[in-house]
Amino acid sequence: MSKEIVFSAETLAVVNKLIKRYPEGRQKSALLPVLHVAQAEFDGWLSSDVMDYVASILEIKPIEVYEVASFYSMYNLKPVGKCLLEVCQTGPCMLNGADDLVAHFEKKLNIKVGETSEDGMFTLKTVECLGSCGTAPMLQCGADYHENLDETKADALIEKLRAENKRSRYC
């Protein structure tokens, strides 16, 4: 049922290029970027099988991958919806209406923060400062920043993402 966990030849070439950026024997340095690549390749999250595979590619122990994957907030250790809506909620965004924006998404998608919509399309997540304080409130979906949001723009974004029906990815 689940697809075999192997990078495509194309992805493997990207990964090998990443590894070459570091001195000989320091291939572990490529772990963060390679985990991003793996997450994008394998449905937007890192299963233990995927992490074991990354460990084998980088010739490091699986535990070295687990401890890193569990430290950084952008790695998903559980399946997520096709579009991960990451709404910033820290100080400057809060001052400019982040609370209302989160409440609006909860109502519109009929889910709470941390949950995935029934159709598997959206996961709503609150995140800490994304460096977009001058264009608050905002959210990140994949590599894209959606800034200066209000309810109308938020609704339009949801419609657009639904119509595109693509998995969001950072890379």
Binding site: R26, L32, L35, H36, F71, Y72, M74, Y75
Partner: peptide, 24 residues
């Protein structure tokens, strides 16, 4: 080098740890 979501990696030695592929 791309990070992965951790404010602490702005601290210079945490950043170096992260650049070595470790927790920050």
């Amino acid at each position: 080098q791309i990070g992965a979501g951790a404010y602490i990696c702005g601290e210079e030695t945490a950043l170096l740890e992260s650049l070595e592929g470790k927790r920050g």
